[in-house]
Design a protein around this nucleic acid. Structure first.
Lengths: 141, 141
DNA sequence: TTCCGTAGTTAGAATTAGTCTAACTCTAGC
DNA sequence: GCTAGAGTTAGACTAATTCTAACTACGGAA
């Protein structure tokens, strides 16, 4: 996120700290926790504090630049891909993989009908065994 | 422990503490957090400890008697309904509602294909506005 | 029956994630 | 230079969860 201070938009608010947080999330293809981000951001910006990382994450989330995910383990994870997509979690090694289910629109409609909610977004999580693990474990699973 | 020492099955392991935890989860139709469960279980079993509740929850989860859910707020929630079902979360009031999407089997197949995972279960979360909230807020939303 | 090992429970300490707060810094407008 | 506002910082605080070590109950072997 560079330079351009022409328009007084949200971009103006992308301080060095927020930029560093965003860069960390975008540079990693895994889904780091807030703490992972803190550690990595400190490499670029040694004085950045814990609270700033959380503030930045909240800001970036509101600005729609990152997405917050949460799975069983209490620590939120962050994802720089902001288009709608789904996740698969390996029950063996815990790996988290992105994929996109094109049926999502239909899905949301069906879910909204069933639940009688006014739909905003839908998110699907597949629990299963990832290709690596199922290969290692062979057929005994 | 309750009587019947006939079959040495899993049921043998349902100690009073675990029974109390299970009862609490089943008696409530909301989705209590571990702490809610701890508080309620203490009413039946005043000496039960925090760690025992967590141990029991882990045991019950492994035994397939309860399900753990997790949403943004760090505290896991527990659900006594063990049949597969989906959840809708109100973005306005935070209410969590169960529903069942019959398309789930197809869904899982499609998701497994896309992600190349060996599927075990699929879980769908609809974010949206619940009937109550959308009624209150009327059309200005 | 007594002893021993195992499983489960207990209390409380420790750890981890995340929030809060008050002081500090930077920048813009006066 | 002074002031206000936004953002940052360090560190205290809170809540969720796990760990640990001592204790208890119970079943099987001697």
């Amino acid at each position: 996120m560079a330079s351009r201070s022409a328009q007084p938009t949200d971009e103006q608010k992308l301080t060095p700290q927020r930029g560093a947080v965003l860069r960390v999330i975008r540079e990693r293809e895994d889904h780091p926790t807030a703490n992972d981000i803190f550690e990595s951001a400190r490499k670029h910006l040694p004085t950045i504090s814990h609270a700033t990382v959380y503030n930045s994450l909240r800001y970036l989330k509101l600005a729609g630049l990152v997405r917050e995910l949460s799975f069983g383990d209490c620590a939120s994870r962050y994802d720089g891909i902001t288009e709608r997509h789904d996740h698969a979690i390996c029950t063996d090694c815990g790996k988290l993989v992105d994929f996109d289910l094109t049926e999502a629109a239909d899905l949301m409609r069906a879910a909204a009908l069933k639940s009688r909610f006014k739909p905003e977004s839908v998110h699907l999580t597949l629990m299963g065994v990832c290709p690596d693990c199922s290969e290692v474990n062979g057929s005994n699973r």
